[in-house]
């Protein structure tokens, strides 16, 4: 579905990666290895070079906003530009159901400044899902969550792949890739590999 060839930034790459329709791919590795930078580069947020194609269409053939709506990236720390949570969402019929699925039924009427890190994380995921993306790039989507919330978010992620989207996520939780049936990759000094080369890499 998403094919990445020879992706490079000053600190990352070259990276080659194929994401299959309806699949999970997990990346782990030490801090500073370039995991977040890789996701940023795929979303075209930083200068990068390489050949990226989504279902046969080259990235550079479409405007960046169109690309980012189809290849949605949720950073580890999300950005909020208005005071009220409501202003960050398009109010669609199934928004309420999605919020309920992550345990934040009433969040729309809350203020952003009073959200906890975990609440922000879950809301940012819902916000990205509203775009109806074909590929989801998630940077530590469950790092600040308690176990029940982790289960809810993983449920949501599975719903997404069941509908055919591909999910690439960064995680430090050693059991999460297996729970989701993900292909597990490791990243060190900007390069991806199928197994960790050092002992200390999780």
């Amino acid at each position: 579905m998403l094919t990445i060839e020879n992706l490079r930034t000053p600190l990352v790459g070259p990276v080659d990666l194929d994401l299959e329709k309806g699949s999970f791919t997990a990346i782990s590795g030490p801090s500073g290895a370039g995991k977040s930078l890789l996701l940023r580069a795929i979303a075209d947020l930083d200068l990068n070079s390489g050949m990226l194609t989504l279902e046969g269409t080259e990235r550079e053939k479409m405007p960046a906003p169109v690309w980012r709506r189809q290849v949605a990236f949720v950073p580890a720390e999300s950005g909020w530009w208005a005071e009220d949570v409501r202003d960050h969402f398009t109010e669609t019929p199934d928004l309420g159901k999605q919020l309920e699925a992550v345990g934040l039924k009433d969040a729309l009427s809350w203020q952003v400044s009073r959200l906890s890190t975990g609440e922000r994380q879950r809301l940012a995921l819902i916000r990205a899902l509203q775009l109806g993306p074909k590929v989801l790039l998630l940077d530590e989507p469950t790092s600040a969550l308690d176990p029940p919330s982790v289960a809810r978010v993983e449920m949501l992620m599975k719903d997404c792949t069941a509908r055919g989207c591909a999910i690439l996520f960064v995680t430090h939780d050693p059991d999460q890739p297996d729970r989701l049936g993900a292909r597990h990759l490791y990243m060190e000094s900007g390069r991806l590999s199928a197994s960790p080369s050092r002992q200390d890499a999780p």
Partner: peptide
């Protein structure tokens, strides 16, 4: 200072 907020809107498909 608002880099994260600006990028959040870019990531949601904003110009």
């Amino acid at each position: 200072q608002g880099k994260r907020d600006v990028e959040a809107r870019l990531l949601l498909g904003g110009t």
